[in-house]
């Protein structure tokens, strides 16, 4: 057997050159993306944090170092936070329950279900502002508002929907539920479809009622997706802006002024509160992280991975 020949100096050099050339090309390929991401995402976040430590405005964000004042939030911050929590709570319950129920109802593969899937998904695709406008129109408290007209026809009294501070938040949640149920239902459905029918047959033979099977078998088996829904709906609810601004603008009064609107107000609508807005933004981010960490820490234990 001939021995393996070792490379000559020249050959090694050539190999190195080829490798380096390959690396250069790879870097060229990722460079634009990395540059954009750093320039428009990473760096601004750091920038935002730094600005939150100062007092200033759009012209000069760094007038005075003021981190303590910025981070000791004003009373209306708590209002915004409470509103956001209210929204999140309602959305979470409504969307999760409805998605699961719809999914259970529609996951078996049939022509009707396939069409239904598509139909329920459609609202997800339109702009938040468009959906907001359409539902504002439907929910109008004026006599020509369709919802109230239908309610009255059924013998129920009119609801003041977006004009009443006790129902405004729920109305917005309702619209966003309509908009997002289709998407979340889709995710749950694909999880349900992956459960082998034999498991259900076996459960039947084991004398399990439909309800028992649902809670003891179906739900645990889709728990990873349910967890995903929990995280996504929560973080999405923190960020809600478009629909609120269109449907109520934060009102009536402060009933629907959510965090994202609060931050926007302080950032651009008022004087010299840029730093404060940034601080509020950072706080919002921290809260989202905290909730996510909490979910991973405590809730994830209950998720059955396979």
């Amino acid at each position: 057997m001939t021995a393996v020949t070792s490379m000559t100096r020249e050959q090694k050099k050539e190999l190195g050159r080829i490798k380096r050339r390959s690396w250069l090309i790879s870097y060229a390929m990722i460079l634009p993306a990395i540059v954009f991401l750093i320039a428009f995402v990473i760096y601004p976040t750091i920038s935002m944090f730094i600005m939150s430590l100062y007092f200033g405005n759009a012209m000069n964000p760094y007038k005075r170092f003021q981190w303590f004042k910025n981070y000791s939030v004003r009373p209306d911050f708590w209002v915004a936070l409470r509103n956001t929590a209210e929204y999140t709570g309602m959305a979470l319950v409504l969307v999760m329950v409805l998605s699961i129920l719809f999914a259970q109802w529609m996951y078996k593969s049939r022509k009707l279900n396939n069409v239904a899937q598509t139909v329920f998904f459609t609202p997800h695709l339109v702009a938040g502002v468009s959906a907001g406008f359409i539902w504002s129109w439907l929910m109008s408290s004026q006599p020509y508002g369709l919802f109230n007209t239908v309610f009255n026809a059924l013998g129920l009294s009119s609801v003041r929907w977006l004009d009443d501070s006790s129902t405004a938040m729920f109305s917005i949640v309702l619209m966003n539920t309509w908009k997002s149920v289709g998407y979340y239902c889709l995710i749950i459905m694909s999880a349900m479809k992956s459960i082998p029918t034999e498991i259900y047959e076996s459960a039947r033979l084991d004398g399990s009622s439909s309800i028992k099977t649902f809670f003891k078998i179906t739900i645990p088996m889709i728990s990873p997706q349910l967890f995903f829904l929990l995280i996504t709906i929560t973080t999405g609810s923190f960020k809600v802006f478009d629909s609120v601004r269109i449907m109520t603008g934060g009102g009536p009064g402060d009933a629907t002024r959510v965090l994202s609107m609060y931050i926007y107000d302080y950032a651009f609508e008022r004087n010299n509160t840029l730093g404060y807005a940034c601080a509020a933004g950072i706080l919002m981010m921290l809260m989202m992280v905290a909730v996510t960490v909490f979910d991973f820490g405590f809730v994830e234990k209950k998720v059955h991975y396979q």
Binding site: S22, S26, L37, M48, S260, M288
Partner: peptide, 28 residues
């Protein structure tokens, strides 16, 4: 493709993925 620090750069992509628009618009 393989290239040095690939993990680091991809990590940047991951981090960027998690940051919402709300945190970037003011400085941008």
């Amino acid at each position: 493709r393989e290239f040095p620090l690939k993990g680091l750069w991809f990590g940047i992509v991951l981090v960027a993925f998690m940051i919402p628009l709300q945190l970037t618009y003011i400085p941008v």
